[in-house]
Amino acid sequence: MIVNKVKIDNSEFNYDVNENIVLLDNQPNEIEILKRFSNDYYEVLINGKKLIVGIKKDNNQIQINYQNRTFDIEIIDSFSAIKKEMSSLSGNELMTASVKAPMPGLIIKINKNINDKIQKGETLVIIEAMKMENSIKSPFDGIVKSIYSTVGNTVAKNDILFEIERMNK
């Protein structure tokens, strides 16, 4: 049987909902919304404890801002779990991944050419933002497939800079 699951920060719970009670692994959590501030920020009461959190929802992905940090929480209900299982059966595993600009800035230096081998943690490109140089590093071992950045150009946040093919183990 497929059950509803919620994933946060490497932990996973089975869930069920009944009105304002959320059961996590059969443990009840009582929730009450006390205030809504602007910009999707809320004061909430959970099991008698007060929290201030920012909450954004995007399909089954919930983003919570708590204690000056942001957490992505994935919710897999029975329906979407089935969908996911079906798609993973088709076996299309991603072999290439793109490296995106983590912030807007100016491209100062590009360290790699197309077809260059790159190791995890090696610097691909240097971006200047907020007066500092920031090295953008490769997330895994691989080969540079395409380069979408040019020295001297500005990039926006989440612009794709590189496409890297994952090296076979």
Binding site: V6, I8, Y15, L51, I55, K57
Partner: peptide, 18 residues
């Protein structure tokens, strides 16, 4: 880092909002 209770609270809250 988040402790277990905090993870539980945020997870419950996410489900509630969803």
């Amino acid at each position: 880092e988040l402790n277990f209770e905090e993870k539980q609270m945020l997870a419950a809250l996410s489900v509630y909002f969803k």
